[in-house]
Design a protein around this nucleic acid. Structure first.
Lengths: 109, 109
DNA sequence: AATTAATACCTAAAATTCTTATGTATAGTA
DNA sequence: TACTATACATAAGAATTTTAGGTATTAATT
């Protein structure tokens, strides 16, 4: 199973960006979407995902809506206004970091 | 003082790549070189750097040579053969991660 | 002359973030 | 009946970094 290790801090950025594009998603859906988009390269573990979602919610970045679908619970998350702003910041931060790394280790992509 | 946070795992890659280009360097020199190459964007703290260097040495990636210059100690590190191979691996890993992130969050660079 | 900044090494406590390992529960499939 | 997929969750441990200290010499500033 090929599975790149996450680099510190990038999980939050991934979550925010996906929610920015898909309006609302639930946790399990996020893990599947990441697998799909990266062709199995990156597997978000639930042990990392759920605590991250809870923290983003506690920080006011996400709103939650619990829905019962086929007798199973789903917790749909969506960006708050702050969350949308934070998404922009995080994406800039990531862009910037990649540029910085290129200055250090040469062209990478 | 602008200072991007390091993403987990990237410090080792930075150290290896710099040593790959400069043959031998000492710790303090690495911090200064990173500052210079990133125009102050990235500051490698000594609390992160020295333990990393010691670990790379313990893992057989680096050789050390202690030199006294102007009555001050310098510990010059250079890549071992394993270290050179590991540098290639780490750079590939980073390249791959950036590609993966692009698949997730769109073109970033 | 005395303090501060720069050079050069170091470690330890704390914080952060992730992996690994569990646990619960329902629905569908072999 | 057992396994897989769906869907949530937490807790212990590992890994890496920040923060905060410590030692010592030399150069620059006050």
């Amino acid at each position: 199973m090929p599975n790149s290790k996450l680099y510190k801090g990038s999980l939050t950025t991934i979550i925010l960006k996906l929610l920015n594009e898909h309006d609302k998603m639930y946790g399990y859906e996020i893990t599947q979407k990441v697998k799909e988009l990266t062709k199995g390269e990156l597997n978000i573990t639930e042990g990392a995902l759920y605590p991250s979602l809870h923290k983003l919610e506690a920080d006011g970045m996400l709103d939650v809506e619990v829905v019962k679908v086929e007798n199973r619970l789903r917790k749909y998350y969506k960006l708050t206004e702050s969350g949308t702003k934070e998404t922009v910041n995080k994406l800039e931060e990531l862009q910037n970091y990649i540029k910085t790394m290129q200055a250090l280790v040469g062209k990478l992509a």
